[in-house]
Simulated assay, not measured.
Amino acid sequence: MANRATIKDVAREAGVSVTTVDRAINGRATVRSETLKKIADAAQRVGYHGMGTFRDRLDQSVPEVNLGFVLLKQSQEFYRNFAQEIERAVEARTDIRGKAAIRFSSSQSPAEFADLLTELGETCDAIAGAAVNDQKLDRVVQGLKDRNVPVFSLLNDFAQGIRKNYVGLNNMKVGRLAAWLITKTVHVPGKLAIFVGGNRWHGHDLREVGFRSFVREAGAGFSVLDTLVNLETRQLTYEATLDLLDRHPDLNGIYVAGGGMEGAIAALRERHSEPKVALIVNELTADSRAALIDGYAIMAIATPLPELCKDLVDMMIAAIGQANDGVSGQYFLEPRLYLPEIL
């Protein structure tokens, strides 16, 4: 066929010599995996009939790596987005044949988190998870560490001193940021409320401490009510927010430090035809975006998922096969702040 692509076409498209393409096809000499990928991509673009050969050689030249991930409820938009970004970050790596095994916990049960980590530990080279703080998980992570399977904590810093690294936001600063905006935005002092997911979320504890400490330091006449636990569920947050509005007519602000913000948004919309309570939420989703646009939320503090997942995968791959140095670190990312004016 006159227009059939040749290795000269592949070489020109890839920016390498014909000899290099020939070596890649026939395996007469070692060709770096980066060059193999460049040639394989070029072969696909020009429609070279032997591109399958390049893909086979490429697959044989890079190691297979299995990465495990534990996230929370799959029904929540944030964690579905999280899973998608993990898959993109793993697929983008050209130095490995990466496989992402993602599991979702249906509850906040330490036993369920422990079971998921244990299951992934049977087949994965490194694991990362968003999980609660509990001794059950400490024992599981220690066992994985003893088998040279590094574990990374995500968003909430569990198994401290045992896990390899924490990757997420600086939760103390996030809480202070939320308090700063509320105290600067609300001009009439009053009561403020804060929701946390539960008593086993160390990250939520830090956000609460940061929030309360800033309100005290601001000395602007605001007071923070007793902390409410919503188990990161929409329904509990909805019911508790309606109760707050009934019992505290001078409620001026709400900070949802974890999940369940959809319930607070729904309650405020139901009770007030126009926004009256300053609401700060976590993560930008369809619900929080709509609340920001309509004025029912004043800020969303979001995790930069693409950046987090890329850096996390980098760290997980780098940790595989390395002798444990006993160092347990923290890797903080800068939050993304979304205000009504920028949407």
Rank of each mutant, 00 (worst) to 15 (best):
A101V: 13
E334A: 12
D138I: 05
F158Q: 03
T303N: 14
K276T: 06
I342D: 08
G253M: 12
T6G: 02
M51K: 14
G98P: 06
L58V: 00
Q76K: 13
T94V: 00
F113L: 08
S33K: 11
N26D: 02
G121R: 11
K276I: 00
S288Y: 03
A114S: 15
R247K: 15
D22Q: 10
A5F: 08
L154M: 14
T183E: 03
R139I: 00
V277H: 08
V10G: 04
L116T: 08
E77T: 00
L305S: 08
G259Y: 12
V167I: 15
A128V: 01
A318D: 14
K73T: 00
G263V: 10
G190F: 11
N148M: 10
W201T: 01
A40E: 07
L279V: 09
P110D: 02
R216T: 14
N66W: 01
L120N: 04
A319K: 11
K184H: 14
R4E: 10
K8C: 00
I301P: 00
S273H: 13
I317P: 00
Y296Q: 07
H49N: 08
R80H: 07
D125C: 04
L292E: 07
G260Y: 13
G295Q: 04
L308K: 09
G52D: 02
L337W: 03
D246N: 13
R269L: 04
M172C: 06
L58N: 01
K73H: 11
T53W: 01
G143N: 10
Q142M: 13
L120Q: 07
F332I: 00
W180Q: 12
L339A: 04
L231G: 02
E334K: 14
L228C: 04
E112C: 01
V21S: 03
S273L: 14
V281Y: 04
I25A: 01
S61Q: 05
A111G: 00
L245C: 12
P189W: 11
I194T: 05
Q330N: 10
F78C: 02
V132F: 11
Q84E: 11
R163C: 00
L305H: 12
E307A: 13
L343Y: 03
G221Q: 10
L305Q: 11
F222N: 03
V70A: 01
N165L: 14
S107T: 15
N26R: 15
R207Y: 09
L242W: 03
E232G: 06
E217G: 06
A240D: 14
Q74C: 03
T185L: 10
G143C: 07
A83I: 05
E64P: 01
A83K: 07
F222P: 02
K8N: 02
I265Y: 13
I317D: 01
V90H: 08
Q74T: 12
K38F: 01
G253K: 10
V327H: 14
R23Q: 12
E112T: 06
V16A: 02
L154K: 05
D205V: 13
A323M: 09
R139F: 08
F211C: 09
R269E: 09
P335K: 07
F195Q: 02
M315E: 11
E274T: 15
R12K: 14
